[in-house]
Amino acid sequence: MGDMSEGGTTKKFLYLNRKASYGTVYALESLEVVLIAAAFEQDVSLAFIDDGVYQIIKGQDTKGIGMKNFSPTFNALGDYDINKLYVEKESLDERGLTEDDLMPLVYEDEDDDWAEKPSIKIVNRAEMADLMQDQDVILSF
């Protein structure tokens, strides 16, 4: 797997996010690694399953818990050419959530006159399993 492009090999990286944002530091760590690693211009996907779906929920307000609300940073991912965010439908369903409860994350498509397109794709559990099979590297948070 992995094809040659200028400057080296492009590999498929999947960042697997399974935790909500503020109870542990995993979610913030994942986002920071994603942003740093974006400089390497690899083929990056983000997966949100289990409580990880809560990372990109709308309307987060952290004033009351004295922690930084880093959810606006997900809006910057498009600028970093990270535009494949897969969210598992079963994980949403179990938690009483729908796609409408998620932030409307978008990117501008360079190859389509910078048209704004959604970055979030809802997939079912079987499709998520296929996505995992299709990767070179899976990083878990």
């Binding site: 909500a20 944002s21 503020y22 809560y54 929920i57 709308k58 309307g59 987060q60 307000d61 952290t62 004033k63 009351g64 818990i65 922690m67 609300n69 009483g96 409860d101």
Partner: peptide, 14 residues
């Protein structure tokens, strides 16, 4: 706890 609900985007009516 309301502050923890707000941080996680859970409104009271949900």
């Amino acid at each position: 706890l309301g502050a923890d609900m707000a941080a996680r985007g859970i409104p009271e009516d949900k």
